[in-house]
Write a protein that binds this DNA or RNA. Sequence first.
DNA 1: CACCGACCTGTACATCTGTACACCAATGGC
DNA 2: GCCATTGGTGTACAGATGTACAGGTCGGTG
Lengths: 210, 210
Amino acid sequence: MKDPEAVTTPDATTSDVAASAAKQARSNGARAAGQRDPDRRQRIARAAIEVVAEVGVEKLTHRRVAAAAGVPLGSTTYYFKTLDDLLASALRQAADDDVEHLRTWAAGLDAGGELAEALAELVLHYLGPARAQTVVEHQLYIAALHRPALQHVSQEWDTALADLFAGYTDAETGRALSVLFCGWQLQGIVREQLPERREVEASFRRLLAG
Amino acid sequence: MKDPEAVTTPDATTSDVAASAAKQARSNGARAAGQRDPDRRQRIARAAIEVVAEVGVEKLTHRRVAAAAGVPLGSTTYYFKTLDDLLASALRQAADDDVEHLRTWAAGLDAGGELAEALAELVLHYLGPARAQTVVEHQLYIAALHRPALQHVSQEWDTALADLFAGYTDAETGRALSVLFCGWQLQGIVREQLPERREVEASFRRLLAG
DNA sequence: CACCGACCTGTACATCTGTACACCAATGGC
DNA sequence: GCCATTGGTGTACAGATGTACAGGTCGGTG
């Protein structure tokens, strides 16, 4: 039986990692047992992110995502009842991936090094090697503006960023750093030329000097 | 530099461009002769902005814009051959309107007053009374990411902002201020609660202290 | 072994979309 | 006065889209 009005999916919204891990452990050898494709849901969500990266949110369709994920159309509508569900999962996935990436970045931060330097480096990373990811994230972030149910995801994203930075200074400075950080990203993604590292670093240093 | 406008005009493909231009040049004294509704094109562009504000870029359609502008469907496709043309005009219109607004703001700036204070005020204005406008602008700004022909519009927008701020300090500080300004806007539009004026002002002051 | 209930898929359909284009209307030149 | 030209509009059409849903498959359970 298909649950009629579950929040988003037949699965629970979170913690499918544990469930899928258990089942995967049980049926590791050949094809999956019971659940033929345990993490297909997450794969579809990531395919949605990929589609947004390539053609933009306004061209996000079930069919395109299905093609990108290599699954039939019926599969995407099975896991995501409506397109907004799909978009929501994509946003959540992108935010989670990003925050995790930021955490590992923070973990690898040299305690003795200068924070402004590291932040400038991070900005350039997001505008250079990880530019595609940055573009998607902003698309999804903005797409949430017209979906009240998603705004808290974007909010928590910003908050996580500010908290992370606050860990090295104080709450207010952390917020200011996150604001400047977002600004550099936003202005950077529409230009093909990267900002000067020296200039970016200098701006962070000014904020920290207060 | 603002150059290419003819590309979006309806008669771009037909061959009587020269003839109409000649006649218009010849009968220049009679203003808007032959045009029953001279600024309908601009009205449609503004209606497009309105539609984006209400339902988002991904739901921007000819029909919706026509309804919002109070014109028949055929009229929107007459002035804007394709949807991208319409979106482009909307972006340009929004950017122009915004830059003009910023200029009048700058013109009314008290020379003796503090810049940080005025900037904080401006941020709160864009997140409060002019929030809808801010939301649209970001939607359009982001939409340009997948339309290379539009990126320069967004770029010039940022540049105009930085130049404006630079007029009160120096080039690099102006850029930094514009980055922080954009950051406050971006983070502000997903929250329903405005940031504290004192905190915003303090962040600008820190940048200016360097 | 039979059966049940999940996972999964192919297809159908109503709707919406962009766009073309054949039409009216007025206006300025003759 | 007439008429060509251009502004303006209603409609038609092919295609894409979201979504429902009837089946199909297969492991688990009694």
